[in-house]
Design a binder for these strands. Structure first.
Ligand SMILES: [Mn+2]
Ligand SMILES: [Mn+2]
Ligand SMILES: [Zn+2]
Ligand SMILES: [Zn+2]
Lengths: 154, 154
DNA sequence: ATCATAAATGCAACAAACTTGCAAACAATT
DNA sequence: AATTGTTTGCAAGTTTGTTGCATTTATGAT
């Protein structure tokens, strides 16, 4: 899926965040990853390279995600995975195993192509296709309006 | 979305499960619901009608889901919602508010129609579209083969 | 209607993933 | 090198869902 690599140091510098060993380790793990990684995966990988705490991993992932550096792939039942959101890795659908939770990146796909998989099982079997549009509901737009408008004025 | 109603009593009878007051209350809540309901929603609604425990709600939801009576809508970060999976309520995509977690049922939709929403905000704004194919991965098919084949022999 | 039995429920304890508060350590700037 | 705001680590907390086991209940047979 991903064929080229970002520079971790450069990406962090451009984000305005401090370039700490912990952030470098997390980002390098994600840049080199073939599959999306869970917070636990990332903790295990980074702990080999630097002193790092579980909570720090969560905080780093949240800050990268909020800046659009990485994407969070939500997998139900509280066990997100993360992948790079750089130009080398455009948005794409995922396969998720209902048994082991494994996440596999899929190529871009129309819904009817996806539905075809239901009938013609390949390597894996597809039982269900979930489509979710995620954003802000009408109520939360109203509620957040004060904040949003204020910062939009600059 | 849903315009007709199932009969709770009949649905439970056909499932082979015992018709307990708790199961009746859970199913009636889901049949009458306009939006998908969380386990907490269901506990609150059913507790008004019968003595019921939090754990019982989870167990009833799992048994209905496993029999295809209801669908579980997974929402990241462990807070599923549930909706009827009867003929009156075919599979459809959902909108999810990233702020309040609200789930809204959407009409059937192609992906390109969904992407159009990103540009043309309506009542709610769409920031992201998640597509997940859910099933069994190659490894888990192999692993479960013993079980599956055994019971398939009957 | 009563009984026997398997199924379902309630309760307490547990578990996983994630969050929060706060003090100590550190990176970036001067 | 000193300053200052940012980041981290640690301990404790929260939320959501699960498990074990004793008690209760639904259901089918008498
Ligand atoms: Mn991916
Ligand atoms: Mn729905
Ligand atoms: Zn699997
Ligand atoms: Zn909302």
């Amino acid at each position: 899926m991903k064929e080229e690599y970002c520079d971790a140091s450069e990406t962090i510098k451009q984000s305005g965040l401090a370039r700490t060993p912990q952030r470098m380790a997390v980002l390098e793990a994600l840049i080199l990853a073939i599959h999306p990684l869970s917070a636990a995966d990332i903790l295990a990988l980074t702990a080999e390279k630097t002193k790092i705490n579980r909570v720090t991993v969560y905080r780093i992932l949240a800050s990268f995600r909020d800046r659009g550096i990485i994407r969070e792939i939500e997998t139900g039942h509280a066990n997100s995975s993360y992948e790079m959101a750089c130009a080398h890795n455009p948005v794409h659908p995922h396969f998720r195993c209902r048994d082991c939770g494994r996440i596999i990146c899929l190529p871009p796909l129309t819904l009817s192509q996806a539905w075809d998989w239901l009938a013609q099982p390949a390597d894996f079997t597809v039982e269900r296709i979930d489509v979710q549009l995620i954003g802000l509901c009408a109520e939360c737009i109203k509620k957040d309006n004060g904040n949003t408008v204020a910062s939009d004025n600059f």
